[in-house]
Every structure is written in structure tokens, then in C-alpha cells.
């Protein structure tokens, strides 16, 4: 009985040390804020870049061959997918943008450029999944290639691509955990720092994991609602 009480007191003390002492909960909150901020901007950069890269990659010359843009887009996707994202972040931080002081901008760009490659492949699949008859019909009424793409193919492609895009965004949130490598205090790094201050790993690390999980779970549920709503419009 005594040992039970002692164990409980120990748990409480560790919890207090990890979250309450010196208002440490604020650090987690700030860390989560930074994580979400980077993920948000990187997500936007990734989606815009992804659409552009997907369109470049699918562009064809009049005789059906690959265009210069298509080749460039292919190389970009290959390079990004073929190198670790930590390395991409370090290269962006220490080489390409070493003089930039806005660290969130640098991190967002690094993750956005990384995500763009994956988003591009998602959009490419989404565009290819649209029935070629839609394009033929668009061209047949006299619309240009780009008008057909903009008004007919892309809206349908985006609907196809939405579920995997949401998946990619969730991956992105978790992947930002590597910004600790360049000294930014995101949620993961905060947990790690507190561990080294209290010499106790359980509470900070499990705590951070729970926070990630809850945030992503909520997001998944919201996206599920959005997806169901979109699908409903299919059989109106």
C-alpha cells in the first residue's frame, strides 16, 4: 500500500516537473505553435508548387514528346524524392539561405519544396484519372488546352486528389519534427530539451507524442467530414 502511494507521488512529481514547473507547458504550446506554423506555410507552398510541377510534368509538345519543362519537373521530383529531407533542410539552412534571419521562412520553404514533389505526383495521378473524353469534349467546343485544363480537368482532378493530399499534409506535420536539427524549438525539440533539464524522459516524450496524436486525430476527423461532403455531391 505504501509503495503504491510512493509510486503515485513519484508520477505526480514527474508530471509537475515536466509540465508545471516554471510554466513549462508554455514551452510545449509554443513548440506546437511553431510546428503548426511551419506545417501550414509549407503545406501551402507544397500545394501551389505541386500543381505547377504536375502541369509542367504533363506538358507535351505538339508532336507528343516531352517538353523542356516536363524534363525539369521530372528532375526536381527525382532529386527531392531521392534525398533525405533532413539533408534538404540542412542544405537550405546552411547553404542556400544562410543569410536569411527569418527561420520560419527558411524551414517552411525547405519543407514546402520537399512536399511539392510528392504533391505533384498526387496531382499528376489525379489529372490522369480524369476521363480523356472530358478533355476531348472541351477541345471540341473550341476551348484551348489551358482553358480545358482550368475549367474542366483541374476541378475534377483536385477532387480525385483531395484524400491523398490530406494524407500528405498529415505526414508533413510529423516531418517538421526534424527542424530541431537547425535549432528551431518545435514540439519535438521542446520535449527533448525538457528531458535534458529534468533528467526524466517519460513524461515530456510521451506528452509530446500525445499532443501530436490528438492534433492529427482531430485533423483527420475534420478531413473525413470534408471528404464525405464532397462525395455526397457526386450522386446529387
Amino acid at each position: 500500500m505504501r509503495s503504491m502511494t510512493e509510486w503515485w507521488a513519484d508520477v505526480v512529481a514527474k508530471f509537475v516537473a515536466a509540465f508545471i514547473t516554471k510554466d513549462r507547458w508554455r514551452l510545449y504550446l509554443n513548440g506546437l505553435g511553431l510546428t503548426m506554423e511551419i506545417a501550414f506555410f509549407a503545406g501551402i507552398i507544397g500545394i501551389i508548387l505541386g500543381i505547377i510541377i504536375a502541369l509542367c510534368r504533363l506538358s507535351r509538345s505538339r508532336n507528343g514528346g516531352k517538353t523542356f519543362l516536363s524534363v525539369i519537373a521530372g528532375i526536381y521530383i527525382d532529386v527531392i524524392r531521392g534525398t533525405p529531407s533532413v539533408l534538404q533542410l540542412l542544405i537550405m539552412w546552411f547553404i542556400i539561405m544562410k543569410n536569411t534571419t527569418n527561420s520560419v521562412l527558411v524551414a517552411s520553404l525547405a519543407f514546402g519544396i520537399n512536399s511539392g514533389a510528392y504533391v505533384a505526383e498526387i496531382f499528376r495521378a489525379g489529372i490522369l484519372a480524369v476521363d480523356p473524353g472530358q478533355t476531348e469534349a472541351g477541345r471540341s467546343v473550341g476551348l484551348s488546352k489551358s482553358q480545358t485544363m482550368l475549367y474542366i480537368v483541374l476541378p475534377q482532378a483536385i477532387k480525385n486528389a483531395l484524400p491523398p493530399i490530406c494524407n500528405e499534409f498529415i505526414t508533413l506535420i510529423k516531418e517538421t519534427a526534424i527542424v530541431g536539427y537547425v535549432g528551431l524549438s518545435d514540439l519535438t525539440r521542446v520535449a527533448n530539451q525538457i528531458t535534458s533539464r529534468t533528467y526524466e524522459a517519460f513524461m515530456p516524450l510521451i506528452g509530446a507524442a500525445v499532443i501530436y496524436f490528438v492534433v492529427i486525430k482531430i485533423l483527420t476527423m475534420l478531413l473525413g467530414i470534408l471528404e464525405r461532403r464532397l462525395r455526397k455531391s457526386d450522386n446529387r
Partner: peptide, 28 residues
């Protein structure tokens, strides 16, 4: 594109624009 505006084409599989209403299909 100018030529195609003067030539209507009707397909075996209709190929109506799935993302648009009937009105928008016609007026687009």
C-alpha cells in the same frame, strides 16, 4: 480552336463536363 468552334462534335460516351451543371455545360 477557331475551327472547332464552327464544328460541333457529339461523342459515343456523351462526355458532358462532370463538374458542371447542365446550364454551365452549355454556356461554358
Amino acid at each position: 480552336n477557331k475551327i472547332r468552334q464552327q464544328m460541333g462534335m457529339v461523342f459515343q460516351h456523351f462526355n458532358l463536363f462532370n463538374n458542371l451543371t447542365i446550364m454551365d455545360n452549355i454556356t461554358l
